[in-house]
Amino acid sequence: MLVWSRSGRATTATIALVLFGVLYGLPIAVIALASFAGQWNSVLPSKPTLEHYVNALHGDSLENLHVSVVTGFVASLVALVSGTWAALALRVQPRTARRVLDAVFFIPSAVPSVSVGLGLLVAFSQPPVLLNGTTMIVVIAHFVLISAFTYGNVSAGLARLPVDFEQVAESLGARPFYRLRRVTLPLLTPYLIAAFSLSFALSMGELGATVMVYPPGWVTMPVGIFALSDRGAIFDAAALTMVLAITTAIVLIGLARVPTRASVR
């Protein structure tokens, strides 16, 4: 510990709390305030109203919520399957191939999302595969962008899994698929849930690739929020942002409560 005196500790605590408050507490508080604001002409908003939430849960905005949640679930689920598959299959590769492929599966997280969207537009606006203007291309964009994060989470979990469990299972006569189903995957469950949660949160907030590829009938919340703020409806934008954050939080908290018996000691 660095500071021992009572006054010194009080000072550092105050500085730290103020810093955190201004940097991280204030932005969220301000969005929350704005989402209830009827008017904001002085320091604090006035005429509190629920109107923006009513707007956020009606018409286009409600549709945005639906689109975001569906896109998030589908993209995260596909990413979870393919990421888990990749992480598991990577373990049986020769050493050099494993190193190279590990980097390959991480690359999508390093490429700017706008370029991912542009690539999809260029690739799938021409035969043989025409996806431009479909819902599918949005889901694909989200899948590509979050796949590296699911892969990373699952492979980190696999690396932490003691090798003994699987070897004992194998020595007891479990064939590879039986072992995978009864031992490896149950033990990985906490990591799978964490991977899914992170992917879902990232998908809910994705903007760069979505604005490149979304069709008029499939507008996600971030795009909707941008459209609202762009035409000056900033309080509605704030309310929709709150809905986004709360929806994400509800899903994440729900997932965190999924009971898993696989707590490794």
């Binding site: 003691p162 003994d164 004992v168 299972a169 020595s171 009864r182 033990l187």
Partner: peptide
């Protein structure tokens, strides 16, 4: 898995998501 051996390791490696009896039954079920 085809060698028909029993193995016990230093840190037991009991499957944490299975009860004691399920652990014992594992090899038979497999």
């Amino acid at each position: 898995h085809a060698r028909n051996i029993g193995m016990v390791v230093q840190n037991y490696a009991l499957f944490p998501h299975m009860r004691a009896e399920e652990n014992v039954a594992f090899g038979l079920r497999a």
